[in-house]
Design a protein around this nucleic acid. Structure first.
Lengths: 358, 358
DNA sequence: ATGAAAGCGCTAACAA
DNA sequence: TTGTTAGCGCTTTCAT
């Protein structure tokens, strides 16, 4: 008795009542062929829409397949074709909240088609990542999508992989790779432009962790937009951490040193919430005295506070969708992928924390 | 020419029979055998540690495999063995923040072993779920783990699947299935017991959305613990939504109606933050006048506010790990799984919002 | 239009 | 100890 047969039988007896014949996954093409009274080859052709089958025969085969609820075995198919209809999704941190929307977008884009997603979490560990890449390649995935945990460039998987690869959120260090990243510079500009549109002119910025590209990019965009408007920042930009507590502290410092901003850009939504607290502590009203804008549009943050927060949504789900779509395209096309970095524009979501001055 | 392109070309020309079909990463066992000067079967035995090979021969085969960086093709192996070393992870909402830690835990537990995870998001849609289950089964996964988006029981996938299934977070409606859920009743008790230990006796509860089992379970636990202590609630329990805004409103109502709690249990961390706001608005100090406890221990919530929030961590990552481990076990055992519901105990994390009365 | 046969890469009886 | 043979389920020539 083969292992296969044994395992089936065990499963069969292991669960439901024994009269129940479990057909799922056990019906083979040859069963269908036999029932339809044709050869295996013909059955295959009929099922796959090859045009060398008489209509009536095809009908019979289709019918037989239906009756047996035949499902082709992708392993067998893959073994032959070399393609598995599978992509690997290598994530840096399942923990972080940025990989999630991206993951959703990707899953979404694939889900529509015929591709399934293998999930691997490398925990930011290079060793583990290598291990997973190998495992994925062993499983003959048709492509790879690498999701980073920050927007800082990350090492490339290399140019000589047997399948196409796209990078999302964290771009590859190799410009020959294709990367999808949020456009933080443009988002920084948008934040300032929105405040300007609200009639604010004394604009300050409380930034996040200085060690992140997201921070420096946003700072750059903000500085550029201010410069173009011919304005000086209302206070020197301060970096700190990605926390509410730094948002409070940074804002307090700013005010202590005599800055009188009427517009405040905060490196992310948590910082913005912290800022809201400090502003209120000082008796400053938002948005009347100071308009506040955050980044990321993290809903529980932006909509949990009073007033609700205006924020720049980085459109991560769309980013994930785009990355996945590009990968699917490359797979379909035969594996060639133009390199470069595609920047995903942000989207301004206006809420109560910023209104035009009247 | 990329390797991928080369491999396609070969495929395109069909199996012209003659020749060198060498795609990097596609070294086959027969290549190894040839280089080692043995038969394919012997090579297989040697590589798989069968004890019918002379040590020296094995050495030679291993060496050849090494030199060619041979990686066995799991598809071929799976085709033969019927097992794929793969499990399907069906999630209700990738969006929600509860599936994440569970997913991490599961990925973690599997990652150690040899199982890979297929990710599918059904978006809470039954049709899509069916589709995914079929796709997963087609791919011959060895098991399924179903992650829900709330703790409310969900329909079973059925008893007659060809592979073992475990449910996480949302239990299956069928008691014959194996489900892993957080123990919200016990967590409710723990919240009250903690407040009692802090010397609080006038305890009130602002609950979350009444439509969730998590809400009613926590309410039940809280009520039971109060009853055991011989106490009445300081105010009737109110349900609302899982939002900060309801936390604020609910607390305000409570105080407006003359309740004077010295301990407040909030249905989750967001509610607790809202409560903090309202208490401060009324000039009540936390934790001196009122101690506050939340649920979920969502770090950005609990550590973003002043004072930081005491909360009950539902240990979801552990829950995911347990579910995955049980599934792996069942797969190894041959598919049998004891039914039932396993409750994951919560863990109290004390922070500034609750201290003993002095 | 149909079928016989040859594999895809691997494992495991069974011979030698 | 080693090799031969027979598949796993499927697709694709290449006859018929």
């Amino acid at each position: 008795m083969t292992q296969k047969a044994r395992s089936r039988e065990e499963r069969g007896t292991g669960r439901a009542g024994d009269g129940v014949r479990r057909t799922t996954g056990n019906v083979t093409l040859s069963d269908v062929a036999r029932l339809a009274g044709v050869s295996i080859a013909t059955a295959s052709k009929a099922l796959n829409g090859r045009d060398q089958v008489r209509a009536e025969t095809r009908e019979r085969v289709l019918d037989a397949a239906e009756r047996l609820s035949f499902r082709p075995n992708p392993l067998a198919r893959g073994l032959l074709a070399g393609a598995t209809g599978t992509v690997g999704l290598l994530t840096g941190d399942l923990e972080g909240r940025f990989s999630l929307p991206i993951l959703m977008g990707a899953e979404d884009a694939f889900g529509a088609g015929e591709l399934s997603v293998f999930l691997c979490d490398a925990r930011g560990d290079a060793i583990r990542e290598r291990h997973h890449v190998r495992a994925l390649l062993d499983r003959r995935v048709d492509g790879l999508i690498v999701v980073g945990s920050s927007t800082d460039p990350r090492p490339s998987l290399g140019r000589d992989l047997p399948v196409p690869v796209v990078y999302a959120y964290a771009p590859s260090e190799d410009p020959a790779d294709l990367s999808f990243v949020p456009d933080n510079v443009a988002a920084g500009r948008m934040a300032v432009e929105h405040l300007l549109a609200c009639g604010r002119t004394r604009i300050a910025h409380i930034a996040g962790d200085a060690g992140y590209a997201a921070t420096t990019d946003r700072i750059a965009g903000i500085a550029a937009a201010l410069a173009e408007a011919g304005l000086e920042p209302a206070a020197p930009c301060r970096t700190g951490a990605w926390s509410e507590s730094w948002g409070r502290a940074g804002t307090a410092m700013l005010l202590d040193q005599g800055a009188e901003p009427d517009g405040l850009v905060c490196g992310n939504d948590q910082l913005a919430r912290g800022a809201l607290d400090s502003l209120r502590d000082r008796g400053l009203r938002v948005p009347d005295d100071v308009a506040v804008v955050g980044f990321d549009n993290w809903q529980v943050m932006t909509e949990g506070c009073r007033p609700m927060l205006t924020s720049l949504d980085m459109n991560l789900e769309q980013l994930g969708r785009d990355a996945a779509t590009a990968l699917a395209q490359a797979i379909a096309d035969g594996g060639t992928l133009a390199g470069g970095v595609r920047a995903q524009p942000a989207r301004l979501v206006v809420r109560g924390s910023s209104v035009p001055l009247t």
